[in-house]
Amino acid sequence: MFEARLAKGAIFKKILEAVKDLLTEASWDCGDMGITLQAMDNAHVSLVSLNLRSDGFDKYRCDRNLTMGMNLGSMSKILKCAGNDDIVTIRAQDNPDTVTFVFESENGEKQSDYEMKLMSLDLEHLQIPETEYACVVKMPAGEFARICRDLSQFGDSIVISCSKQGVKFSASGDIGSANVKLAQSSNVDKEEEAVTIEMQEPVSFTYACRYLNFFTKATPLSAQVKLSMSPEYPLMVEYAIDDIGQIRYFLAPKIED
């Protein structure tokens, strides 16, 4: 028996919005420690790694490790049926063919359940090596989304450069070029609005706008986003999910031949 109950059911709705355009299907791995999902997009340019800790759920029971292959478009359709204030429970038997989503209104007067067929997926699972990043930038998630959207108008790539002076986002194309520079916040009243930079060495890498814009679908999950960069390593874009976990996106850089 597997059962995971989350009073803040809207978190599941936001998670699906954050992955459904990038991934068509994925396996949800459930165990004692919680729920994880790892999947690459079809082109194998990016990788999504989601982690939801069991202690972040209001109720969590997992008698036996299980892997549930789901079509994320179908799962998204079902979660759209949940109200923003609904309590969401995900339930499955051991060795399941189906998974059940139960939505309860706050006052307990409405309860709906949706059963979805599971898929047998044979997906590659990649080892993500530990690394010390050369630069780690933390900034408001809304600001990052805005910059990615704005600069996408100029070309299909964004160069992210990070130095002691700050972080710079650049794009260029047929209509011209654009640069957005953010300095480290000097005086921060609200932590959520701060820009902070931890730098071991300056870096500058080129990334595809298309994927950065997919990642920013996670913006409603978190006030801040963390961008981590190192030579010979994919960009990591991380959004914390309340006190339950995080979603990390890895993006392979564009490389000069």
Binding site: H125, L126, Q127, S157, F250, I255
Partner: peptide
Amino acid sequence: APRQSSISDFFINR
């Protein structure tokens, strides 16, 4: 133009 690399260039198949 720079070439798009792949995630599997960096992460190893488990």
